[in-house]
Simulated assay, not measured.
Amino acid sequence: MVKLETHLGETNISQEYFSNLVGHAASECFGVSGMAVTDAKQSLKSVITKKQALDQGVRVRISNGKLVVDLHIMVTYGVNIAVIVKSIVNKVRYTVEEATGMEVARVNVFVDSMKTE
């Protein structure tokens, strides 16, 4: 649960909401072929449901009152990884800040694998 405090009061936003928001924004970027599994829980969830969840490969945490986003992605073979990562960082930061009003300190993108499609 992420708490946002303003002069109007306190708002609680669930971790699942952030993960789905970030996963959806990252998946829409060119060259991203999917999100990578990062732990056993996500792996088991993807095996049972037989589909990729939006929160797969996403971790959102708070550091010094600002959000830090970790993304584990799979990219399409032959694309410029530096350009894709820059695009993802900009899109995720913009999407989260517009949807929640919270400042994003960092977006860490980890390219775990490549797919040929």
Results as ranks from 00 to 15, higher is better:
Val75Lys: 10
Gln42Phe: 02
Ile88Asn: 03
Val111Leu: 05
Lys91Thr: 15
Arg59Trp: 00
Gln52Ile: 05
Ala53Gln: 12
Met74Glu: 11
Ile48Trp: 02
Thr95Lys: 13
Lys41Gln: 13
Val37Tyr: 04
Thr116Lys: 13
Tyr77Leu: 10
Ser27Val: 03
Val32Trp: 03
Lys45Gly: 01
Leu71Ala: 03
Asn80Glu: 15
Ser19Pro: 02
Glu10Trp: 02
Glu28Asn: 12
Val32Ser: 01
Leu54Lys: 03
Ile48Ser: 02
Val32Asn: 01
Tyr94Met: 10
Arg106Met: 05
Arg59Leu: 10
Val2Ile: 15
Glu117Ser: 14
Val107Trp: 09
His72Asn: 14
Met35Phe: 03
His72Ile: 03
Arg93Ile: 08
Ser14Ala: 08
Val104Asn: 09
Glu28Tyr: 03
Glu16Gly: 07
Ile62Met: 08
Gln15Lys: 07
Leu54Ile: 07
Thr116Phe: 13
Gly9Asp: 01
Val85Asn: 06
Thr6Ser: 14
Ala25Val: 02
Val60Gly: 00
Glu117Tyr: 12
Val89Met: 11
Gly34Asp: 04
Val69Pro: 07
Glu10Ser: 08
Ile81Val: 15
Gly78Tyr: 07
Glu97Thr: 08
Ile48Pro: 00
Ile13Phe: 05
Ser43Lys: 13
Ser27Glu: 04
Tyr17Gly: 00
Ser46Ala: 06
Tyr17Ser: 15
Leu21Tyr: 06
Asp39Leu: 01
Val85Ile: 11
Glu97Phe: 07
Val83Phe: 09
Met1Thr: 13
Thr100Ser: 13
Val107Gln: 10
Ser46Glu: 01
Glu16Cys: 05
Val22Met: 09
Glu97Ser: 11
Lys66Trp: 01
Val32Phe: 02
Val68Trp: 03
Lys115His: 15
Asn64Val: 02
Lys3Ala: 10
Glu97Lys: 12
Ala40Thr: 07
Val37Thr: 08
Lys45Gln: 10
Thr116Arg: 15
Ser33Phe: 03
Thr38Trp: 01
Val96Arg: 02
Met114Cys: 09
Leu44Asn: 14
Asp55Tyr: 15
Ile13Arg: 04
Val89Ala: 13
Leu21Val: 04
Val107Asp: 06
Asn90Arg: 15
Gln52Cys: 01
Val96Phe: 08
Val89Asp: 15
Gln52Trp: 00
Asp70His: 08
Glu98Asp: 14
Glu103Gly: 10
Asp70Leu: 06
Asn90Lys: 13
Glu16Ile: 11
Ala53Asn: 14
Glu5Phe: 10
